[in-house]
């Protein structure tokens, strides 16, 4: 199992091909978005929605054998592409590793505006929500 840092480095390396060209980066992200495994429709509930002004995100998480499994979807392809990267990075990791990790790949691939202060997309809130899940699983683990 690769570490969170190793996976992020791999992603950054893949995106270096585009040499900072925004259009190619976005086209690639949209392709990744199309390949994101579909989320179980039953999980696309109001409770699982992470709302943004323009794009919305559905997020669900479960703990299996001490590792967190995320499922997510979005109504926009670019956000979906970023979600698929985030899932690559954080899926099958322990809650502790997720909580201790620093997400650096988003900025390095030139998409820092997606995690900035603006409320137009659900992506920034999604990252927070994923960490909240990790925190909840961690405290459950200690309680058991």
């Amino acid at each position: 199992m690769k570490s969170i840092t190793e996976i992020q480095n791999q992603i950054v390396e893949n995106f270096e091909l585009f040499e900072g060209d925004m259009e190619s980066t976005l086209f690639y992200l949209m392709d990744l978005g199309k390949k994101l495994p579909p989320m179980d429709e039953a999980l696309k509930t109001e409770a699982n929605i992470v709302k943004g002004c323009q794009s919305k995100v559905w997020l669900n998480a479960k703990l299996e054998k001490g590792k967190v499994i995320f499922e997510a979807d979005s109504n926009t392809e670019i956000t979906k592409g970023l979600i698929s990267l985030l899932i690559q990075v954080w899926n099958n990791q322990t809650p502790e590793d997720i909580l201790n990790s620093e997400l650096f790949f988003i900025e390095k691939i030139g998409m820092s505006r997606m995690i900035g202060g603006q409320r137009s997309n659900g992506f920034a809130s999604m990252i927070k929500q994923m960490k909240m899940y990790a925190l909840a699983f961690k405290s459950m683990g200690h309680g058991a």
Binding site: E23, S55, T76
Partner: peptide, 21 residues
Amino acid sequence: GMHHFDAGMMLDAKGIAVRTG
């Protein structure tokens, strides 16, 4: 078949500022 958010981002990549939403 394309969300306005994606379209807005793609146009911005070409230096074109539009509003979406």
